[in-house]
Amino acid sequence: MSRRLLMCAGFAIGVSVAAPAAAGPLDHPGYPKAFSCSACHGFAGNSRSDAMPILAGQHAGYLKKALQDYAGGKRPSAEMEPYAKMAIELGVDDVASYFASQTRMPTASAIDRAAAERGKAASAVCAACHGPTGKGDAAKDMPDITGQPVGFLKNQLLLFKADKRSPGDAALMQPKAIIKGLPDDTLADLAAYYASQR
């Protein structure tokens, strides 16, 4: 019996309503290695909380670098270090490509439009690396920060300012110097601006 006939037979007795042929949301080879992440980062990496970053649609190279930095303690985080080590054991390329291949749903957290406007006006210093709207640069492992939660972005900027994110990383000395020169209010405005970008 052909597959189609089998399916029709199934329908006739009321079995199945969906064709099994198309790849489903769990069929990516990275899913069994990345499934733990959704507890904090949301299904398919689309975090719906203000504190947790969206991983969906992030550049794979950047995700890999971030996981390696967490695992090695270069980017200190008690929460991320054990998971990063697990991701590396399981296959960091599969994990990174799983999230990179997901469609980003921009943050659902509230964005202050006036703050976003002020942030846009202050964003020229960020554009050199992150691009004019924050899409980043896959070739340089520069993250896509568009549509990320405001709280997450603001928190990261404050960690950079206090040199608590990747402390001592030579590659980050220049951006940290820029951020240190900005008042906290401006950092909040920048967070609102990039959160509002699509």
Partner: peptide, 28 residues
């Protein structure tokens, strides 16, 4: 187990992450 890690100390930032975790995992 691969590893167990504790936050170095109690902190407001950890509480913020707790709220984020709850929102995300309830949805999950």
């Amino acid at each position: 187990q691969i590893e167990q890690k504790l936050t170095p100390a109690q902190a407001v930032s950890v509480a913020q992450n707790a709220v984020g975790w709850a929102q995300s995992i309830w949805a999950d």
